[in-house]
Design a binder for these strands. Structure first.
Lengths: 353, 353
DNA sequence: CTGAAAGCGCTTACAG
DNA sequence: CTGAAAGCGCTTACAG
C-alpha cells in the first residue's frame, strides 16, 4: 500500500518519466501484462486491461520509443537528405519552395504512416550525430554524381530511395525519377512551339542529374538543327542576381549566336533574366522568350509572369515516403515505381498574342 | 579461427548490422573492452585500441544510436514543431521562406551540436508515431493561444523552447521572443515617418502572438490619435489572392475611414495588396503606402518592391537550438534569453521621393 | 489469463 | 589493463 494519502502519481520515480515498471507496480501486475494490455497482444482479461489503461493514463505513462526500437532496431524514423541544403548561408537554396514543399509533404506523409521525418543535409560529414544515421530508411533528393551519401548508405546497408538519379549510377539504386531529359524536353518543345529557333540553356553548377540531363537534352536538340548548343552554368545560389550576367553573356556576344529563348533551370535565374532583359529594353516575350525549370514563387508574380515547369514535389515526396516506409519495414515494392510527370505552367513570358 | 579463406567480414551476422559483440569476437576481446576502446573511456592498451579500431572499420561497425540512447533516454534528437505547417494543402504556409530558413538553420545548428533535427507538425494528434515524442527537446514556432502542444510537452516533462510566445501564457515557458508589439511598432513608426496618417493592419487568422500582439499595437497607435483602428483578418493561406479583397475592404468603404497605408503581417498579402491597388490605378507609394510583416520573396522582386520586416529567422533558429541543446543535456541556461531584433527592409513601396 | 526469463545493443560501475 | 555482471525500458516466446 502506498504512503498514506498519496495516489498513484506519487509512486512514479521522482526524476524522469514513468516506466512500464511503474505502471506494473501501481496496477499490481507484471510488466509483461502491462505490455500485453497496452499493445493488445496476448490475452488479458478485460477488466485488467481497463485498469491498466486507466492507471497508465493517470501517471502519464508513455512507452519509450527508444526501448521499443531496440527490439527490431527500428525507431519509426525516416530521414530526408536535401543535398543542396546549405549551399547558401541563408538557407534559401534555389527552389526554396520546391524543397519546403518536399519537406512538408514528406513529413506529413511520414506521420500518416506512423513515422517521423528527420532533416539531414550530409550524413557523411565527420562528426555527424549518431542519430543522423539512426533512421530506418533515407530519402535523398537530387544526389550528386557518384554521391558519397549513396555510397555510405549502401555500405551501411541502410535502405534508401533517391529523388532524381545519381547521374553516374542511374539504375543502380531505387529512384523516383521522371528523368531530367523528359522534363527539359517538355519545356524545350513548348519554347519551339511558340516560335523559338535558338534556345539557350542556363543550368546550375551542382553536378546532379537535373543539370547534367538537361544539358544533354539541349545539346541533342541543337545538334538536330545543326546548331552549336548554347549552354551557360551559374551557381544556383546567385538567384536573381545572375540575370544580368546571363543576359550579358548571351546577348552581348557574337550576334550569330544570339538566342531567342532562354531556359533557366533555376526559377530565380529566370526571374533575374526577365528583369535584366527588360532593363535593357528587350521585350519579353516579344523579343525574347524566357522560361524557368523548377518554378520559384516570384515567377508567378513578376511582370511579366514567367513560364515554368511544375515538378509536383508534394506528390513526389509522398511516393518517396511510401517507398521508404516499405523499405523500413522490409516489405515488397511493386516495381516499377511510377513517378509524377512534370507539367507546364505557361505564363506571359512565353505567350505571344 | 574463422572458416578457411574467410576474413572478418564473413563473421558478421548474415542479416543486419554488425554489433559490438561481432567486433569483440573478431578482436578476441570482450564487448566491454570494445566499448572502452571505441569511446576512449577507461584504460585500454594502445595496441588493443588500434586493433579494435581497425577491425571495427573492417567489418563496418557503427554503434547503434538506439542502444546508446537507452542508457540516458537521450537520442541526440531535437524536434522542430512548425505550428502553421500544413495550414495549406500545398505546404506553402505564409512565409514559406521564413519557415524554410528556420528549418534549415535549425537543422544545421543541431548538427553542429551533435544533434539531429526532426520535423513535426502536431505531436498532439491522435496516432502520432512514438518517435515524434522521442526527441530530447522541442522547439515550437509560433504557438497558438493556449497551445495544446505546449500543454502536452509540459505534462510529459519534455523540455521545450518556443519561438514567439503562447499569447495566453506569456512568460510561463522558455521563449525566444522579441515580442510582436516591438516588431509591429518598428513598421508602424516607419510608416508614420514617411507620412502615413491612417494605417490599416491586415493580420492572419491564426491565434498566435504575431497576429494578436500586432493588433494590440495598432489599436494603441490609433487610440493615441483618436482614430478607430483599421484592422482586417485574412487567412494566411490566401496569399496574394487576398489582395483584391483587402483593397476592396478598405478602399470601397466609408471614405472617412480610408487608410493611406496598409500593413500586412503576411508578406504575400502585401504583395497582393500592392498588385490589386495598382490594378485600380492607385499608385504605390504615392497614393498608398504598403508594407509587409514577415517578408516573402516576391516582395523583393515585385514592382514596386515592398518594404518588409526581416525577422532574422536563421539567427532565431540558431539560438532556439542552442537552448534546446542545453535543455536536452540538463545544463544551465543563462537567462534572460537574448533575441535578435527585427529590422526594416525599406523598399520602394514606402519610399516617396 | 498472468508472469518469470531472456534478450534487443549498448554502457558503466566494479572486481580481478 | 581487461572482463563479467547488471542495467537502460521495453517485447516476446514460453511456462505455468
Amino acid at each position: 500500500m502506498p504512503g498514506a494519502g498519496t495516489g498513484y502519481p506519487d509512486r512514479v520515480k521522482p526524476s524522469g518519466r514513468p516506466t512500464i515498471k511503474d505502471v506494473a507496480k501501481a496496477a499490481g501486475v507484471s510488466p509483461t501484462t502491462v505490455s500485453h494490455a497496452l499493445n493488445g497482444k496476448g490475452v488479458v482479461r478485460r477488466e485488467t486491461v481497463q485498469n491498466i489503461e486507466r492507471i497508465a493514463a493517470e501517471i502519464g505513462y508513455r512507452p519509450s520509443a527508444i526501448a521499443r526500437g531496440l527490439q527490431n532496431s527500428r525507431l519509426g524514423l525516416l530521414a530526408l537528405v536535401i543535398r543542396p541544403f546549405h549551399s547558401l548561408d541563408t538557407f534559401l537554396p534555389e527552389g526554396v519552395d520546391y524543397f519546403l514543399r518536399i519537406a512538408g509533404s514528406a513529413s506529413l506523409t511520414a506521420m500518416e504512416h506512423g513515422y517521423s521525418m528527420m532533416l539531414v543535409d550530409d550524413p557523411t560529414r565527420p562528426g555527424v550525430p549518431l542519430s543522423a544515421l539512426a533512421a530506418d530508411a533515407y530519402i535523398v533528393t537530387e544526389p550528386f554524381e557518384d554521391d558519397p551519401v549513396l555510397t555510405m548508405l549502401t555500405e551501411q546497408r541502410i535502405p534508401f530511395v533517391t529523388v532524381g538519379a545519381d547521374p553516374a549510377r542511374r539504375g543502380e539504386f531505387l529512384e523516383i525519377d521522371e528523368g531530367a531529359e523528359q522534363q527539359a524536353s517538355l519545356m524545350i518543345s513548348h519554347l519551339a512551339e511558340v516560335g523559338a529557333r535558338r534556345i539557350a540553356l542556363v543550368t546550375g553548377t551542382d553536378r546532379n542529374d537535373w543539370n547534367l540531363g538537361s544539358i544533354r537534352t539541349l545539346e541533342a536538340w541543337a545538334a538536330e538543327r545543326g546548331q552549336e548548343p548554347l549552354v551557360f552554368a551559374m551557381p544556383e545560389a546567385e538567384g536573381e542576381h545572375a540575370g544580368e550576367t546571363i543576359v550579358s553573356h548571351f546577348l552581348d556576344g557574337d550576334p550569330g549566336n544570339r538566342p531567342d529563348a532562354i531556359f533557366c533551370l533555376t526559377g530565380r535565374h529566370a526571374a533575374g533574366v526577365t528583369a535584366a532583359a527588360i532593363r535593357r529594353g528587350i521585350r519579353v516575350p516579344e523579343d525574347l522568350l524566357v522560361a524557368g525549370g523548377s518554378g520559384a514563387m516570384q515567377n508567378r508574380t513578376s511582370s511579366p509572369t514567367v513560364t515554368t515547369l511544375d515538378l509536383h514535389p508534394e506528390e513526389t515526396a509522398r511516393r518517396a515516403v511510401e517507398i521508404a516506409v516499405r523499405l523500413a519495414e522490409g516489405r515488397d515494392l511493386e516495381l516499377p515505381l511510377t513517378v509524377p510527370s512534370a507539367t507546364l505552367d505557361i505564363r506571359e513570358s512565353t505567350t505571344r498574342s
